[in-house]
Design a protein around this nucleic acid. Structure first.
Length: 340
DNA sequence: AAAGAGTCCAACCGCCGGAAG
DNA sequence: ACTTCCGGCGGTTGGACTCTT
């Protein structure tokens, strides 16, 4: 990629102000492969932190901030790339409902995702929906729509995806449980997503402030056990956190992966990011999808809040990428009318 | 095929709080 | 106690890419 922005602040020389060489020739804009390699190499050998001196020592004509951002948002080995999954969308909506635009806090619950990525997702997708619905993204109307329409729909889609991938189906049509009901209940610090599968087994997951917990009698006794995701800020610094529920092995950037695979393996510097640790952590990630789902068919969702209309989404067609299709727009309209 | 509109995301900016001197 | 530096955070932007007409 071509570097377009190079700010050379080599203004007229003065005798009173002595600028460092770095300040005189700071690069801006997209990073080059060489710069990336220099940064990765330096951090592999010296660790991260003290970004300003790091930038100088690594020979990068970048600000410390720029180096930090590049590392945290792009080069860090455990950064996940690719589309935000349904489960992640659900979690983002839930956590944003709690904390608002606390992107870094939300990101701590989505291992491998950066605050920047989540922020971009919110601005480009969620705010777009609000715009389509002609309401403010922070309005009660839109928040209710998220909670009672969008989020249940996400759960439904997660269910459908799980059913499609995990059911060793005998020939025939999917068997939807007529009694299957998903409820979303909210207490002060806990939101519980609860549903029954075709075997009438209770499945649920809870989002606490500080914990994500999963209960499932089927899942608990096999390798998909999720236990609880306990968040402690001290343990969640940059680098690999030990608790995660990602849906797949992190697709690390080729550059970083190659580098760690081929260059730094076996390096004994204690400050080094340990590639084995990074990748072991990635491979150990348990499937959030597995945790919250079981094979089943279509679901109806019943909000538990009083005065909230019962919304049957089982007839809503596939929305694939966009939730706000015509049918759901109508649902939203009905929903809004009933809540005005 | 081309132009315009829309989308996405990497990178920058300003502000703030804490640490260090 | 004050100043400076640094890192972290949320908001914003520019440009590449994709879609639509």
């Amino acid at each position: 990629m071509e570097v377009k922005g190079i700010r050379a602040s080599n203004s007229t020389t003065t005798t009173t102000t002595i600028q460092s060489e770095d300040e005189m020739d700071l690069r801006r804009g997209p990073w080059t492969v060489d710069e990336d390699l220099a940064l990765i190499n330096y951090i592999a050998n010296h660790g991260e932190g003290r970004w300003n001196s790091l930038a100088r020592s690594a020979g990068l004509k970048r600000t410390g901030k720029s180096c930090r951002l590049r590392w945290l948002n792009y080069l860090r080995p455990d950064v996940r790339r690719g589309n935000i999954t349904l489960e992640e969308q659900l979690l983002i909506l839930e956590l944003h409902g709690r904390w608002g635009n606390r992107w870094s806090k939300i990101a701590q619950y989505l291992p491998g995702r950066t605050d920047n990525e989540i922020k971009n997702y919110w601005r480009t997708r969620v705010q777009k929906h609000a715009k389509q619905l002609k309401c403010d993204v922070n309005s009660k109307q839109f928040k209710d729509a998220m909670r009672y329409l969008w989020m249940p729909r996400l759960v439904e889609r997660i269910q459908a995806a799980a059913a499609a991938t995990t059911t060793v189906a005998a020939a025939g049509s999917p068997t939807a449980s007529a009694s299957a009901t998903t409820t979303i209940t909210t207490n002060n610090n806990t939101t519980t997503y609860n549903y029954y599968d075709n075997n009438n087994l209770n499945n649920s997951f809870e989002v606490h402030s500080g914990n994500m917990m999963v209960r499932n009698p089927t899942i608990m006794n096999n390798n998909n056990f999720c236990g609880s995701h306990s968040y402690t800020p001290e343990n969640s610094s940059t680098g690999a956190s030990s608790d995660s529920f990602g849906t797949q092995v992190s697709p690390v950037s080729d550059l970083t992966q190659d580098y760690y695979n081929n260059v730094t393996a076996g390096n004994n510097n204690n400050n080094n990011p340990n590639p084995d640790q990074y990748y072991q952590q990635a491979h150990d990630q348990l499937s959030f999808l597995d945790c919250i789902t079981s094979p089943s068919g279509l679901f109806d969702f019943q909000p538990m809040e009083p005065n909230t209309p019962w919304i049957n989404l089982s007839n809503v067609g596939d929305t694939s990428n966009g939730f706000w299709n015509v049918e759901n727009m109508l649902l939203f309209q009905q929903f809004s009318d009933n809540n005005m």
